[in-house]
Design a protein around this nucleic acid. Sequence first.
DNA 1: AAGTCGTGGGA
DNA 2: TTCCCAAGACT
Length: 309
Amino acid sequence: MTIDSAEVVAWYSHARRDLPWRGPDVTAWQILVSEFMLQQTPVARVAPIWLEWVARWPTPSATAAASAADVLRAWGKLGYPRRAKRLHECAIAIAAEHGDRVPDDVEVLLTLPGIGAYTARAVACFAYQQSVPVVDTNVRRVVARAVHGLADAGNPSATRDLADVAALLPNDATAPVFSAGLMELGATVCTARSPKCGICPLRVCAWRAAGYPPGTGAPRPTQRYAGTDRQVRGRLLDVLRASSAPVVREHLDVVWLTDTAQRDRALDSLLVDGLVEQTADGRFALAGEGDDAAPAPQGGAKQKTDEGG
DNA sequence: AAGTCGTGGGA
DNA sequence: TTCCCAAGACT
C-alpha cells in the first residue's frame, strides 16, 4: 500500500503549525540550528531557545565567534549538551571551510559535525527545496502504519527506510512540502500514543484496513534517567553553567554524594567529551570559558575580537 | 551495533 | 507516581 502525496500536501497547507523556523525570512543556517535543537527534543521546548539563539547568533560566523562556554549556557537545559558543542563545531567548520554558507549538498552536509542522515536531508529539503527523502521517527511511524499496516516502526534500517520514503516522494515540485507534511502528520495526528485516526487526512491506511493490529509486544528497553551517569553529568553542568569563574572540585562533588565512583566517572566523561576543562590550578570550568572567539581553524594564532569592555 | 547521551511534560 | 518518549548522532 502507498500514500497519496496530494492528500498529504493538501492537508499540510492548512494544518501546519506556525513554528518560528518555518517563517519566510528564516535562513538555511537558522533552519539547521532548529534541526540540531529538535534532535530528541520536543518542539515546545525548542521554540523559545531557538528565538533567542538566532537573534543573538544569526549566522555561522557569529556562532563560531562565540565561546563554547557561552554556547553551552545559551543551550541551557535543552538536553544532550554534546549537541550544543557539535552545533558550535559545525558553525566553525561552515564559517571557515564553506564561506559562511550552509552547504546544500547532502554528501557535504554529512561531513559536518553533528549532522547525520536525518539532519542532512532535512536541511537539503526544508532549506533548499530538494526532492530528497527525509526520514525521522515520525515518518518511520507513518510509513509503518499507512504503508505496511504495522502499529510501530521496526528497528531503524537506513537504506530500507530511505528507500521506503523515496518510493513515496512525488515526482514534482511538491516533494519538499510532502516531506514536511509527512513529518507533521506523524507529529500531530499519527502519534506514537493515542493516534488521532478520526481526523487523519489519509483516505487509505494499511493499518486501519487491517483493523489496527497492536504492536508485536517487543518494545525496545526504555532508557532510565534517575541514577544514571547522565543525571550526574547534568548536575555537574548545572554548577558550571551558573559560574563564570572556574570552580573547585569540592564545589562539584556535593552534587552527587551517593556514589563517588560514579560522580568521578561522570566528571571524567565531561572532560573527555570536551564539555568541561580543567584549569592549570586544578579547578573546573565549561570548555572555552573566557574565550572571546573560537580558535582559528588552521591552528594559527587566536584572533582577538575588537569589542570594548 | 547495541549503548550512551538530558530533560521535562503528559498519559 | 511511574513510565513513556520527543525533527538523532556517534562510537
